[in-house]
Design a protein around this nucleic acid. Structure first.
Length: 214
DNA sequence: GACCAGGCACATC
DNA sequence: GATGTGCATGGT
């Protein structure tokens, strides 16, 4: 699947934030939200000089909500951003670099404890901000795999993720090599989901995956 | 005007 | 454990 998608679409050069912290903020803002709207919110934060751990940590949630308004769910996401920043300060001295020194297994457990950070957001932060070898499952991935008969659509997040990981050989101490692959693979799934495997489009005649056997 | 977008927490059965 | 609901803006 990866080979076909890469051949069809080319590298996606995905999620280029200016810093790991910005990527983590984007991961929360993009929950169930178009990335274009997230970019507006991030631009607002930047022009307010608010895109830093220190500024967000001290900011009133209502003020933060006003800045991230274009991303939707702004009241909810303001609280979630505050929760994440609080966690980052309390557990890692406010530093993504220090956070990254921990193995991703314990980090994932910590992130899932943060209010507003679920499995996908946690894995997105681990892969795209901290460059840990974790595969991200999202609505696109679930739709594509279930529609192509690879997975049951009702299966949970971990079932999808385990299936993906099982498809790769054990890497031992070289798991870091999977990071660029997982990064690109997930981005290609999103591309396919956006352009071909859309909701209420059961048949997509020129899908790059047509003819594959599950 | 309907549908969609890189989820999550919480309530209810 | 499965299912339903609120959260909200902006593009197509």
């Amino acid at each position: 699947m990866y080979s076909r998608l890469l051949r069809a679409f080319g590298p996606q050069d995905w999620w280029p934030g200016d810093s790991p912290f910005e990527v983590a903020v984007g991961a929360i803002l993009t929950q169930n939200t178009n990335w274009q709207n997230v970019e507006r919110a991030i631009a607002n934060l930047k022009s307010a000089r608010a895109l830093s751990v220190k500024r967000l940590h001290g900011m009133d949630p209502a003020e933060l909500a006003g800045l991230i308004r274009p991303a939707g769910y702004f009241n909810v996401k303001a609280v979630r951003l505050k929760s994440f920043v609080h966690y980052l300060v309390a557990r890692h001295g406010g530093s993504m670099a220090r956070m990254s020194r921990k193995p991703w297994g314990p980090l994932r457990e910590e992130l899932l404890e943060v209010h507003g950070v679920g499995a996908e957001t946690a894995d997105s932060i681990l892969l795209y901000a901290l460059e840990k070898p974790v595969f991200v499952i999202d609505a696109y991935t679930k739709r594509i795999l279930s529609r192509h008969g690879v997975m049951d659509s009702t299966s949970g997040y971990d079932v999808f993720q385990d299936m993906f990981l099982a498809a790769f050989p054990p890497m031992g101490g070289k798991a870091a090599r999977l990071v660029p692959l997982f990064n690109e693979y997930h981005a290609l799934m999103v591309k396919l989901g956006k352009d071909y495997c859309r909701p209420r489009h059961p048949a997509c005649g020129d899908c790059p995956l047509d003819g594959m056997k599950a």
